[in-house]
C-alpha cells in the first residue's frame, strides 16, 4: 500500500532522511519509532506530498507521489503532531470545511462531519469554538479531520506527543478502534510503548536511517526484555546483590556504582521479581528500591546503536532520546 523507494531528503549538508526504503502492505499498522530529529516527520511529509524528496520516490496506493500527487492526496488522511485545527472555528465547521475541500456535496460533508464527531466523542462540543477545547479534544478533532475523506491510508504523525498520560491513554483507545477497522496506518512516535500498543510492525529510525525492523517483542528481545532492578541501602551489599540477581536473571548484570543500582534482564517478569525479593530478603539485605522496568526507547536505542555503531552514536542517540 505504501512503498518507499530509496528516499533521501537533504536540508543543505544535513541528510534528514538518508536512503530509506520501506514496504507497508495493505491493512498493516506500521509504527515508525525514533527520537526527535530522527527524520520521522520529514519522511511523513514526503509520503503526504508536502515535501519533494531530494532523491528516490514513494508509491502510495498505486500512485507515485511525484507524478500523481493529487491521487495520492485523495488516498491519505493526515493527522499531525501540531493538531492543525482552526481555533476560531467550531469543531463542526472545521470538519465541514475539510469535507467541502474533498468536493463533497454539502449534505454529505455534514453527515461525515457528524459521523467523525460522534466517533471521537466530540458531539457535545461540536458547536463550540476549538479555542475552548482541551489538548486531547484538539487531537481528536485533528484525527476526525483526517477521517472525513474516508482515507485508505491513515498517516498519524506523533498523535500523542505532548499529551499528559491520562489523555494519551484516552486517545490510544480511539486510535486502537480506528486501526482495528483494517486501515493501512503509518504511525510515527517517540514512545516504544505507543508503537507496542498500536502497531503490528515497528521500524526504528535514527539520524534519517532505518536501524531496525520487527515486531515490538522482537525489538524488546534485542534489549533483553524487562529488567529487574534492586538498590541496596549500603554500598557494601552491592557485590552480594549482584550475585543474587545473576541467578534470577537471563542476561548480564549491570551495576551502577554511583547510584547503587543493580539491574538484570529477565524473561518472566513477576516470577523473577518474586524470586529476587525472596533471595534478597533471605540474605538479609536492606533495599531502598526493588522494581521491574520495561525497556524504554532509550534502552532500545542503546541496544541497537550500541551493537552496530560507535560509542559516539550511542551518546548521540541517548541525548536525542532524552529530549521531549
Amino acid at each position: 500500500m505504501i512503498s518507499i523507494q530509496g528516499v533521501s531528503v537533504d536540508f543543505g549538508p544535513v541528510k534528514a532522511v538518508d536512503n530509506v526504503s520501506l514496504e507497508i502492505p495493505r491493512n498493516e499498522v506500521r509504527g515508525l519509532l525514533g527520537p526527535n530529529g530522527a527524520g520521522k516527520t520529514t519522511l511523513v511529509k514526503v509520503i503526504a506530498t508536502l515535501l519533494a524528496p531530494s532523491s528516490g520516490t514513494a508509491i502510495v496506493g498505486g500512485y507515485d507521489i511525484h507524478d500523481n500527487p493529487n491521487a495520492v492526496r485523495s488516498m491519505i488522511g493526515l493527522a499531525g503532531q501540531y493538531a492543525a485545527v482552526d481555533d476560531l472555528l467550531t469543531g463542526r465547521e472545521n470538519l465541514e470545511i475539510v469535507g467541502a475541500l474533498y468536493q463533497l456535496p454539502k449534505a454529505e460533508a455534514k453527515r461525515r462531519a457528524d459521523d467523525a464527531l460522534e466517533r471521537l466523542s466530540l458531539t457535545d462540543a461540536a458547536d463550540r469554538l476549538v479555542r475552548t477545547y482541551s489538548g486531547g479534544m484538539r487531537r481528536r478533532l485533528d484525527l476526525g479531520a483526517s477521517l472525513v475523506g474516508r482515507p485508505d491510508v491513515l498517516i498519524l504523525d506523533e498523535p500523542t506527543t505532548g499529551l499528559d498520560p491520562r489523555t494519551r491513554l484516552e486517545l490510544w483507545a480511539f486510535l486502537r478502534e480506528l486501526v482495528s477497522e483494517g486501515a493501512t496506518v503509518l504511525l510515527t512516535t517517540q514512545y516504544l510503548e505507543e508503537a507496542d500498543e498500536l502497531a503490528d510492525q515497528i521500524t526504528v529510525i535514527d539520524s534519517g536511517k532505518i536501524i531496525a525492523d520487527g515486531t515490538a517483542d522482537q525489538l524488546k528481545g534485542r534489549v533483553g526484555g524487562d529488567l529487574v532492578t534492586a538498590s541496596p541501602k549500603r554500598r557494601a551489599d552491592l557485590v552480594r546483590v549482584r550475585e543474587l540477581l545473576e541467578v534470577v536473571g537471563s542476561g548480564p548484570v549491570r551495576v551502577d556504582e554511583t547510584q547503587l543500582i543493580v539491574s538484570v534482564p529477565v524473561d518472566s517478569r513477576v516470577e523473577a521479581l518474586v524470586k529476587a525479593a525472596q533471595s534478597l530478603d533471605e540474605a538479609g539485605i536492606e533495599l531502598s528500591d526493588l522494581a521491574i522496568q520495561r525497556p524504554s526507547l532509550d534502552d532500545v536505542f542503546l541496544a541497537i546503536t550500541g551493537k552496530v555503531g560507535t560509542t559516539e552514536d550511542v551518546e548521540a542517540a541517548k541525548t536525542k532520546g532524552g529530549r521531549r
Binding site: R26, N27, G61, Y63, N68, N70, A71, S74, M75, D86, L89, E93, I97, A100, L101, Y102, Q103, L147, G149, R150, P151, D152, L154, L178, E181, G182, A183, T184
Partner: peptide, 29 residues
C-alpha cells in the same frame, strides 16, 4: 475505512472544483 471507495477516481480536477475550493477557503477566512 477501506470499505468505502476513496475519491481517487478524480485525480485531475476541473474548473467547478476550483470555484468550490475558493468558496470554502474564503468562507473559512
Amino acid at each position: 475505512m477501506t470499505a468505502v471507495a476513496p475519491n481517487a477516481s478524480t485525480p485531475t480536477r476541473s474548473g467547478p472544483g476550483l470555484v468550490n475550493d475558493v468558496v470554502a477557503m474564503t468562507r473559512r477566512n
